[in-house]
Amino acid sequence: MSMEPAPRATRRGGGTPGVGPITRHRILEVALEMIDRDGVESLSMRRLGKALDRDPMTLYRHAPNKAALLDGVAEKVLDQLEIDAGGQFEVDGSDWVAQLRSVARGFRRLALDHPNVVPLLVTRPLSTPLGLRPLGTLRPLEAVLSLLTRAGFTDTEALHVYRALFGFLNGHILNELQELVERPEETDDLLRLGLHRLPIGDFPLLRGLAPVLAAYDGEAELERGLDILFAGLTATLTDPDGAAA
């Protein structure tokens, strides 16, 4: 009687576990999926290896540690941010404003698509000196500087504009993603937001703004903030004739 060899175990969806090439792109893709689903804290080399049907030790060839893996995820997300740094713009025109407005909207979309990645984009870079950050996280900075210097701003002015824009954007994103509602079943705005807990005598203005706070619209707030920011930048960085100050 002939003995048939035992079939090899297969993973869900077919195929043999651990067989076939594993690439950095695929590793980061799955890592991003895990973070999107369960948060940054859920990611580990062991869990990632299991998701990829690989021995976790094989992943270290592509990412030496979890920190490098998180940096790679941040680079992967930021790589989706479109910035037209090669165009020709005028300081006294609206082209550079329109381009930066598009960048701001794109950054917000990425944040809303990947809210669990926002700490990697906004707060994590602050713990690392600029020159030691992953190159992919610096490319938006270089692209915006290129866009603005092509528009006629000096290098220093371009840096000021970048800092003002992304300082506002980072604050806006963190504010938009935070939980504002304490009791969503309540119809009274003061109760929904928990503002009834504040002493009336100490916070009369804040309590009075309950309807406005409850009607928060992230998209509208972004546009309103950009209007104020660009109006101020235009007035500060250009003279009445439209030439760079």
Rank of each mutant, 00 (worst) to 15 (best):
K66D: 03
N170A: 13
A104Q: 06
G208Q: 13
D79W: 05
D84M: 05
G20R: 11
L206Y: 11
L126R: 14
S146R: 09
R61N: 09
D188L: 11
G87R: 07
D84E: 14
L130W: 12
P5M: 06
P125K: 02
R61P: 04
L28Q: 05
L48M: 06
L213R: 07
D188H: 06
R24N: 11
I200T: 12
V73F: 08
A31W: 03
V30T: 05
G87H: 08
D38I: 02
F230N: 07
E82L: 12
D239G: 12
E186M: 14
R163S: 15
L148A: 00
R26I: 04
L121V: 09
G87V: 10
E29P: 06
H25P: 06
S102W: 02
L130P: 00
R150Y: 04
P21Q: 12
E176L: 09
P184R: 08
D92P: 00
R101I: 06
P211A: 12
H160S: 14
D227A: 06
L169S: 00
Q178C: 10
L48F: 10
E223K: 03
D189I: 00
N175I: 12
A143N: 10
T137H: 06
R11D: 05
R26D: 09
A243H: 10
T128S: 01
D113T: 14
T238K: 03
P211I: 02
E176K: 02
F107V: 13
A31T: 01
D38M: 02
P204M: 09
T236R: 13
I83G: 09
D113A: 14
